[in-house]
Simulated scan of single mutants.
Amino acid sequence: MTSSAYSALIPVAKRPGQLFVKGQGSYLFDDTNKGYLDLVQGWAVNTLGHSPLVMQEALARQAATLVNASPGFYNGPMVELANTLVKHSVFDQVFFASSGAEANEGAIKLARRWGQKHKNGAFKIITFEGGFHGRTLACMSACGKPAFEALFEPKVPGFIKVPFNDLAAVAAAMDDATVAVMLEPIQGEAGVVEASCDFLQGLAALCQAQNALLIFDEVQTGIGRTGKLFAYEHHGIKPHIMTLAKGLGGGVPLSAMLIDNAVSCFEYGDQGGTFSGNPLMCAVGQAMVEAVTAPGFLAGVNARSQQLKAGLGLLSAKYGLGEVRGQGLLLALNTGMLDASALVEKAMALGLFINAPRANTLRFMPALNISEAEVAEALGLLDKLFSQ
């Protein structure tokens, strides 16, 4: 398709010229029927790959009964998914929305509401350099992404940025007006940078000592992506608030904010949204959570993680590249002196989708049910890529 066919779209992203028309499992197909092995999966969105049968069935079943009731009414899938998430987590209540940014916006609002009611109007939220929380104005204000610094000024005040994995810097930034600390347990857009276990445990203790809320942005890491259902489980801590999106909907627009009863302080009208708790989306979310919590599923995620991580390590050694980092099926490879963006383009020509969040970093976010053979195929394509 010619580029002029796309002129009706506002250009907000640099997209390749292909028109994609079909997806199945780990593969995406363009309008020439060329297939691509997809290790991006909508930026860690497609939990079970493209168009999984359980999603098709959930959508068809729910569409035949109720698509949209009203955010002012209860509906079956909303209630069922909320109870399922509470059952499988340390949280007590759930608010549903449509995007990760919307869930994070809700977390910011709840923290500030709690500060008004319980901490003398405290409103400041400590966030981290390299962090990414979405593209609403408040979420961009919370981000530590350098490219956002000059955009859309004046931004929302009250966000204090400190270095990641630096507990002393967090402690120094705290004062009586600090209401919360908000972070990703693994910074995805920064290049898959992990928070250390010591740092996260220290952060939880510091927040408790300072009467501040701990907010985990698990938009990318939640729903099995790290090899556990939620990333906080790796560290033996309990955040006060957690946000989910991406993998929760498995490809449809669904997000959630999960909270502890102790911080539940919204009054009627404080929070809402036209599609909050939409039954069609929640039915898909229920199918995704049931799939990921099924016996043996997370063991498979960890097995494929080990296979991919080991293969990337061998390629790094073979071609003189850098470290492999990440957890589960959220992994990254440092490309050393090689331009990661150029590698992404060359990989596409080979029929492989990968992502470059940084100039020297490749990120891998395959479907959580990717097969052993598909991982092997991806590693073979990467070997061919680097050999060029």
Rank of each mutant, 00 (worst) to 15 (best):
T2E: 15
S7T: 13
V12T: 14
A13Y: 13
K14M: 11
R15F: 04
F20A: 05
L28T: 07
D30R: 00
A44D: 13
N46E: 08
L48T: 03
S51I: 10
L53G: 02
V54L: 13
L59P: 06
A64D: 10
V79T: 14
T84M: 13
D92P: 03
Q93T: 13
Q93C: 10
A97L: 12
G100M: 09
N104E: 05
K109R: 15
K119T: 01
K119I: 12
I125D: 03
F128A: 02
G131I: 06
H133N: 06
A147S: 14
A150D: 11
E153Y: 09
K155F: 04
P163A: 05
N165W: 09
M174C: 01
M174R: 06
V181Q: 09
E184R: 01
I186V: 14
G191F: 01
E194F: 05
Q201W: 07
G202Q: 00
L203Y: 07
L203T: 00
A205S: 14
L206A: 11
L213W: 04
L214N: 01
G227Y: 05
G227A: 07
H235G: 06
I237K: 04
K246D: 04
G250F: 02
N261D: 15
S264M: 13
G269P: 02
D270E: 13
S276F: 08
L280E: 02
A299Q: 15
L312K: 00
G322N: 07
E323V: 15
A342S: 13
L343Y: 11
A347F: 05
L350K: 09
R363K: 06
A367W: 09
I370F: 00
I370P: 06
L382F: 02
D383T: 03
